[in-house]
Simulated scan of single mutants.
Amino acid sequence: MTETSSPERERRPDWAAAAIGLGLAVVAVVVAWNAYSLRGGAYATVGPKSFPYVVAAALAILSVWTLVEAWRGDFPKRDHDELGPIFWIVAGLAAQLLLLKPAGFSIATGLLFACAAAAFGKRRLWLTIPIGIALAFVIWMVFTRLLKLALPGGPLERLVF
């Protein structure tokens, strides 16, 4: 079946873009609702409530614009998504989220590094996991020792310090 350039084919609504437009509208309503519930700033015309209203208005305008473009079908054709790399990235983020407290920052972030490397084609996990853990450990040391910020420590961090 060949793809034709008939007006019906080009004018078909883009339902994914419409969902994004509706999501923008929901975010605009939430921001406006939170701005309405803010207290303070009654003594000045421009206060802490002003900027969230500006953000909500901008989101609402973007929402309407996105919905109109989605209805017209004017968005460019999207590329096909490769599910393998998406799986690796999501798996790495999930592993970091689940292992951050029990395993510590270095191990959890090292696994995220290895999964991201696998998503980009470097599937030698025996090499990327130790490299990721070492890099994450250096980052942990910089943040906790030099900058005095708190990152969760695990067995590796307790072993060294």
Rank of each mutant, 00 (worst) to 15 (best):
A119S: 13
G84Y: 12
G92C: 07
L24H: 00
A28Q: 07
Y43L: 15
S37M: 11
F87L: 14
A28I: 07
E157L: 06
A56E: 03
L24N: 01
V54R: 05
T109I: 07
L151N: 03
W71R: 12
V54I: 15
I86F: 12
P102D: 02
L93Y: 08
V55F: 11
K148N: 12
A117Y: 01
E69K: 11
A44H: 12
P7W: 05
V55Y: 07
I133T: 14
L146D: 02
V90C: 13
P152Q: 00
V54M: 08
I89L: 14
A91Q: 04
L135N: 03
R78V: 07
S37K: 12
R124M: 09
L24T: 01
L151K: 02
V138Y: 00
A16T: 14
G154M: 02
K148H: 12
T66W: 00
S50M: 12
P48R: 10
V31M: 08
V27H: 01
I131K: 00
A114D: 00
V64P: 06
A119G: 15
D74A: 15
L111V: 14
T4Q: 05
V138H: 00
I133F: 07
F137D: 00
T128V: 10
R158M: 04
R39P: 03
G84P: 07
A32D: 11
L127K: 09
F105N: 00
W33V: 15
H80C: 01
M1G: 13
L111R: 02
G92Y: 06
E8A: 10
S5G: 11
S37P: 04
P155L: 09
V27P: 00
P130R: 10
A118F: 08
V31I: 15
A28N: 09
L159E: 05
L97C: 12
I107H: 00
I139E: 02
T144C: 02
R12F: 10
Y36F: 14
F113M: 04
L24F: 11
V46S: 06
V29W: 05
I131E: 01
L38Y: 15
A119D: 03
P152G: 00
M1R: 08
R11S: 15
L24M: 11
A119P: 04
I133K: 03
W65T: 12
F51Q: 05
L100C: 05
W140K: 00
A25K: 09
P48E: 07
R123F: 08
V30M: 10
G40F: 05
E69W: 10
A118M: 11
H80V: 14
A42N: 11
A95F: 14
A150T: 11
G154Q: 04
Q96S: 11
A42C: 07
W140V: 02
G40Y: 09
G92E: 06
A116G: 10
T109S: 13
L22R: 04
A57F: 13
R158W: 08
T144S: 10
P52R: 01
G73K: 03
L159Y: 15
L125F: 15
A58I: 09
A114R: 06
P76Y: 03
G104A: 01
Y43D: 14
A117D: 02
I133R: 03
F75Q: 01
D74L: 14
W15P: 04
A114L: 05
L111W: 06
F87P: 06
A117S: 11
L97M: 13
L112K: 03
A57I: 14
T109K: 06
A60S: 13
E8Y: 10
M1A: 14
A56G: 12
A119V: 03
E69C: 13
L151S: 04
V46R: 04
